[in-house]
Amino acid sequence: MSRRTVSALPALAVILALLGAWELYVDLGGVDPLVLPAPHAVAASLYDDRGLLWSNFLVTAKEIALGIVAAMAAGFTMAVVIHFSPALRRGLYPLLVASQAVPVPMLAPVLALWLGFGLAPKVVVVALVSFFPVVVTTLAGFAAVDPELLKLMRTLDATRMQTFRRVELPAALPSVVTGTKIAIVVAVIGAVFAEWMSASSGLGYLFEQSVAQLEPARAFATTVILCALSIGLFAAMTLAERRLLPWAHQPKSEGDR
């Protein structure tokens, strides 16, 4: 067994123990399956309803993917603009923080009103909730650049743009990735929420339908798929980071402070 497999064992054991306890509680405790379905029932639904789950998964995955890409593009651009212009920083940053105070639950119905019941309002909600973490972490990445490094670039006669391209931008990339990881988690929540407000497909919609149709096992199965989507996106981001930015995670060697 590889070291990574071994290190995953305790977590796996806890999950299995929890599932086991849940199963025993439902089977032996006389719990109404409409209130709490047993894990085996959820597993059965995952298999039986696979076609339904898959088609709705595709809808939600598309909303999240488009929303995050939009948030990354807009968030990164905004961070660069703010980084370059102190005036815009003073003008935009407070608004940016204040925008986070607007509750998305209030926004979603309005967006449905403006954009209809299709893909667009969901993508906008996902992008709105994902935008903030990307901007804030990217700005933090720019701010964390070693000032000595900027001095060095000046002695090398680097222009402002050269310093940005060769030092600030690469130095901030790991922060952009961190922001995107945070964005992924809130994006899934945002997508489900937007689907509850107005949708005819998607995992959030399927969940609501399943509860209404007294199909709790399917509702739980939907939740499992949502979790898997979230974890999968997060893992993909981590993997991309290791492949594309290997230097960001190298253990620092002796004397390198």
């Binding site: 490094l149 001095k151 060095l152 002695t155 060769r166 230097w247 960001a248 390198d256 402070r257």
Partner: peptide
């Protein structure tokens, strides 16, 4: 300038 710390770009 050759700075005190090497300040090489890690990437």
């Amino acid at each position: 300038l050759m700075p005190q710390r090497d300040l090489l770009l890690p990437w």
